[in-house]
């Protein structure tokens, strides 16, 4: 039986590990290490290889969720992890200084994969001062030439992670 692989990416601290923990049936496999740079003021640990979680479908088939490291220096892991993937979830953190730049960076780096598959964007931590409007995020997505889904989410909630996956598979099924 074939296995299905979904990839979750986004900047450090956006909640990739949390999202996988929220929906995975098994305790997620993590490769967290201590942060030694500026990020240590935000979080003590960061993913350096991948996170991994799984969901079992009714007939026993597995859906694997892979979380990438967020930092650009781990770009090589992005390329390894997307191999054979069905689609991409990008999580963005609006409490970071330039969330639109973050989105553009991931869209550019995963452009080949997105072109072949699909993407959904989850926007998190929108409660701070002056987060960009949804329209501004959509403008970034327009560079792909397609209208992809985008939702404000609380990634700690299983329902919200399920919403992103549902939107992604709907895109793959109906608009690819």
């Amino acid at each position: 039986m074939s296995e299905v692989k979904l990839i979750i990416t986004g900047p450090p601290g956006a909640g990739k590990t949390t999202a996988i923990a929220a929906i995975s049936e098994t305790p997620p496999v993590r490769t967290d290490t201590r942060t030694t740079d500026d990020l240590s003021s935000v979080k003590e640990e960061t993913t350096v290889a991948m996170d991994f979680g799984e969901i079992t479908l009714g007939d026993g088939q597995k859906v694997f969720l892979y979380g990438t490291p967020g930092q650009k220096r781990f770009e090589f892991m992005w390329k390894i992890l997307v191999e054979g993937g069905l689609g991409l979830i990008i999580l963005l953190d609006c409490s970071r200084p330039e969330p639109l730049d973050d989105l553009n960076m991931y869209l550019e780096n995963f452009s080949d994969f997105i072109e072949k598959t699909g993407v959904v964007v989850g926007i998190t931590r929108t409660g701070g001062a002056n987060p960009p409007e949804m329209g501004a995020f959509y403008e970034c997505l327009e560079s792909t030439g397609r209208t992809f889904p985008m939702f404000e989410v609380d990634i700690r909630e299983r329902e919200d992670v399920a919403l992103l996956i549902d939107a992604l598979i709907s895109t793959l099924e109906f608009s690819h």
Partner: peptide
């Protein structure tokens, strides 16, 4: 496959 994933997402974790 997509229907099965959708069905699974509706169910709460065991």
């Amino acid at each position: 496959l997509f229907d099965k994933i959708r069905d699974r997402l509706k169910r709460k974790p065991k």
